[in-house]
Amino acid sequence: MNLFQSRVPFRFQWRYLLLLPLLFMTAFYLIPMYLMIVTGFKAFDEVSLKTIWQLPSSIAFDNYIEAYAKLTPYLWNSINMVVPAAIISSILGSVNGFVLARWKFRGADVIFPLILFGMFIPYQSILIPLVEFMRSINMYGGLPGLVLAHVIYGIPITTLTFRNYYATIPKELIEAARIDGADLLKTYFYILLPLSIPSFVVVLIWQFTSAWNDFLFAVVLTNPDAWPITVALNNMAGSQIIAWNVQMAGSLLAALPTLLVYIFLGRYFLRGLMAGALKG
């Protein structure tokens, strides 16, 4: 596949100058990463403000081994929680977004802001009714309740993303389908869904990341048996002395699955590019 040259002819060699700002930005993004990686390899007594830039005196994997041993028992909890939470809320968001963007019924314009508003609720302030409600529906303590919370509090953001993405799709496309006799569901499955890949990528990235990194809901809604990895990561720190070297190693390990998801999903941006050719 020659995707790279499909849009602009190769003769514009000078456009590679655009790589310079990108490389500069890369440096900005990598500097903190550098510190995390370097600190993750340091011994406890080497972690000091004075020497943050220095390389560790020896490359030891002790911190990673320690963090790995403490985190892995909770890895499955995280995966079992994040995958359904991300998928269900993305699908709900896509359906909602489609209906609210394209199939106006009376009240649709009120419902959207009402759903959206839910995003701004400060979660810290609703922990108590949340826990009480979850207990009352027997969802407290385990992973299903946590999944439910992530799905529901994910609805506003996924709906927003899909709705506004679908709003960029030309009306003519949908009207053409309607003239061909497609009903609502058919229009969704045949016209909009195939065009939604970049949006699904963006939403899945968001939902996966926020559920994976969530600490607050996890710590109040689950029992120790069901703790996801973030609670375990947080528990590696004591209440007084914190070993930052092990914390850095642990959080890099905990970030690996998310990173792999990014790399994997990122390929689908290219699919989105191909899908874009359908329009116009």
């Binding site: 499955w76 909890n77 079992n80 929680m81 995958v83 359904p84 998928i87 269900i88 993305s90 699908i91 385990g142 992973l143 299903p144 999944v147 499955f189 045949y190 869904l193 195939p194 939604s196 890949i197 699904f200 899945l204 048996d225 069901a226 999903l265 689908y268 899908a275």
Partner: peptide, 30 residues
């Protein structure tokens, strides 16, 4: 997921039904 959301519309249906299946996973792996 991505395959399910791909251009072939028919495959979307399994994705939708996959959701409830996925929620059962926690129970199974507890």
């Amino acid at each position: 997921v991505l395959a399910a959301c791909g251009p072939a519309a028919v495959t979307e249906v399994p994705a939708a039904t996959a959701a409830p299946a996925a929620t059962e996973v926690p129970a199974a792996t507890e």
